[in-house]
Design a protein around this nucleic acid. Structure first.
Length: 322
DNA sequence: AATGGTCAAGCGGCA
DNA sequence: TGCCGCTTGACCATT
């Protein structure tokens, strides 16, 4: 029996005034005369972001949602080179600890997806170093939350730089320069333009990295549309992870804007997926990536709940009946 | 109060 | 070589 668990990304359309991504741009920061006051403001924004994230987790708890992606923008300018002297971890340690403790006490799976400016396979050393710097920020947040950082950060393989094969190999080369603690934190996901499921599996198997299969990206970018033949390989990349298999679910906005995320999830597409992988493993965590965030999760849950062959254990976990 | 422009990042396409 | 679009939510200035 396979248990399917639904989660969603970073913010809620139902909980008002709960942004976890409030920010201050560097140009704004620079314009403030009093640097100390500017940093104090950054700390106020960060605390608000962390507290809003805690509010979202409590909202999730009330709806039995135990799977959630945290915003990578919790601490504005944390990775900016002009703020290297800012000990934001010290300033935010109580808030971070409270957030992590709550997630742990409620058995919630939380993780990050740093945006595409983190490029491990960059041929430019400064870009690589900046990427490691951003990953260290994520590591410090997790550590300060008291969360085991293992397999908590989703990344793509990176750019093609006019030579995809060479750039794929460069990921493997550069991986050797990634600190071990950071390596353990990473999962790899297929993207919608360059690196396919096959490319990612090749790298993940070679380096022992869990692979996150994104079905929508696969439809937009593949060598062979038949992903199911690779499914055992996908599962195997999770063999040594303390966490269940994870994947991403989204639907195309339209035929013309195929790669953009739709507001909601196509239930038929999702159900077909579920049927295809049912019984293959104990649990699959499905991250719902839709414009309507948690509302897309609710609507999907409602539609699936009307199916006679689906049984919901909680509001956000279900299994397929025989 | 609603709007349109700006911000930040790295890559990729185009001239 | 260099400019612009991509993407995202937030925020700022203008109306």
């Amino acid at each position: 029996m396979t248990l399917f668990r639904l989660g969603y990304v970073a913010m809620s359309v139902h909980v008002q005034n709960a942004s976890p991504s409030q920010t201050m741009t560097y140009s704004r920061f620079q314009k403030l005369q009093d640097r100390e006051a500017a940093i104090a403001k950054l700390e106020r924004i960060s605390k608000s972001n962390i507290n809003n994230t805690l509010r979202l987790l409590k909202h999730n708890k009330a709806l039995d949602i135990e799977f959630f992606r945290l915003s990578s923008k919790l601490v504005p300018l944390a990775t900016h080179e002009d703020l290297k002297d800012w000990d934001y971890i010290h300033a935010l340690k109580n808030e971070l600890r409270e957030l992590g403790s709550y997630a742990k006490s409620e058995n919630m799976r939380i993780d990050f997806h740093p945006d595409h400016f983190v490029v491990i396979n960059s041929p430019k050393e400064d870009k690589f170093k900046a990427s490691i710097n951003v990953l260290k920020y994520h590591y410090k947040l997790l550590h300060s939350m008291g969360i085991d950082p293992t397999h908590r950060c989703v990344l793509h393989l990176g750019g093609s730089y006019d030579d995809k094969a060479k750039s794929l190999e460069r990921f493997i080369e550069n991986w050797g320069s990634v600190p071990r603690g950071i390596q353990k934190m990473i999962m790899i996901e297929n993207d919608d333009t360059i690196y396919t499921m096959d490319d990612c599996l090749y790298v993940c198997e070679k380096l022992g990295i869990p692979f996150i299969f994104d079905l929508h990206h696969h439809m937009a970018n593949h060598e062979d549309s038949n992903w199911l033949k690779n499914w055992d390989r996908v599962l195997n990349t999770w063999e040594h992870s303390p966490l269940p298999v994870k994947m991403h679910i989204s639907s195309p906005k339209s035929e013309a804007e195929f790669k953009s995320h739709a507001d909601y999830i196509d239930p038929e597409m999702f159900l077909n997926f579920v049927k295809s992988v049912n019984q293959s493993t104990d649990q699959i965590d499905c991250m719902i990536e839709a414009k309507k965030k948690d509302d897309a999760l609710f609507i999907l849950r409602k539609t699936l709940g009307e199916q006679s062959n689906i049984e919901f254990n909680t509001e956000a976990t279900f299994q397929l009946k025989d």
